[in-house]
């Protein structure tokens, strides 16, 4: 049974003070969401049992919510990715972003931490999987969540979202322009990323992929290779490649931002979460 806020009720009937609207019984709870949320820094148990910092945002006006792990991009645990984390909570999902560079640079400015991580060769796939698994467990065990967890990653995090989809019990993954999913990073690079083509058979959850046609990493040819591999393995996936958008088109505070692609992309992300974890 729905509880209708008094303010909304008075819009429907100015003299009403309380009533049960049986005819609205099938209306979803989210239609009455205030979009209220809380956001805070928490400590979670990551790879190897290490305590690491994470940023969590929770909706406060609904219960039994789906969850999402937000994997930050190579530039780190920054303000723009915290904003993305809060956006998920405003949409009615519990969201948690582990600081993948916490061990390397605890308490440092995000750009300093990212520079230190790069200088040390980045983080391993094993650490990434362990940290995301820690975040997944943390979300699944919260009293306000329904135990269903997706993961999303931007840029380098896009590849990492595909990786965790192949190795962890997630209900959905979202790859936003992740490079080096179907090819290795250059051999001479100090940051190594290996192709995930050999792991795709293990992908056990639906996948949403959002890409820019003007991007070179991943290029449209590379996303076509990924699409063919997922089709070959019979996976549940949905790809969208936006015209007039390149890499990082979701990033609102950079020149790469493309409003039309980002707006449509956010709609598709929320629809995907409604289908997979709500």
């Amino acid at each position: 049974m729905l509880t209708v806020p008094a303010t909304l009720l008075r819009q429907l009937d100015p003299v009403a003070t309380s009533v049960t609207l049986v005819e609205l019984r099938h209306t979803t709870q989210k239609e009455f969401m205030t979009r209220n949320l809380t956001a805070e820094t928490v400590t979670i148990t990551g790879h190897h049992g290490d305590n690491i910092e994470a940023y969590m945002a929770l909706p406060t006006d609904t219960a039994s919510v789906g969850s999402i792990v937000v994997i930050h991009h190579l530039p780190g645990y920054d303000e723009s990715t915290k904003e993305i984390t809060r956006r998920f909570a405003a949409a009615g999902y519990a969201a948690l972003m582990p600081n993948l560079y916490h061990r390397i640079a605890p308490g440092a400015d995000p750009d300093d931490a990212a520079a230190a991580a790069r200088a040390q060769g980045g983080i391993s796939d094993e650490q990434l999987v362990g940290d995301v698994e820690g975040a997944r467990r943390y979300l699944a065990n919260l009293s306000v969540t329904n135990g269903r967890v997706a993961a999303i990653g931007f840029c380098s995090g896009g590849r990492q979202a595909v990786l965790v989809g192949c190795r962890l019990p997630l209900q959905g993954i979202i790859d936003c322009y992740g490079a080096f999913v179907v090819m290795d990073s250059p051999a001479e690079s100090s940051l190594q990323a290996t192709s995930l083509l050999g792991e795709l058979a293990s992908l056990q959850c639906p996948m949403l992929g959002l890409f820019g046609k003007e991007d070179g990493y991943p290029s449209p040819e590379q996303t076509a290779t990924l699409e063919a591999a997922l089709t070959e393995h019979g996976k549940d996936f949905e790809f969208h490649t936006y015209e007039d958008a390149g890499h990082a088109f979701f990033n609102v505070d950079r020149p790469s931002y493309r409003a039309e692609a980002a707006a449509d992309g956010w709609q598709r992300i929320i629809s995907f979460l409604e289908r997979t974890v709500a």
Binding site: P75, A105, A115, G246, A248
Partner: peptide
Amino acid sequence: DHPVHFASGHAVMIDVLNPQLGPS
């Protein structure tokens, strides 16, 4: 890579560091 402050899609990035003294 993508710059933090310079208003372009990509930039040449130079970090001069002392890892022994920490990330700052």
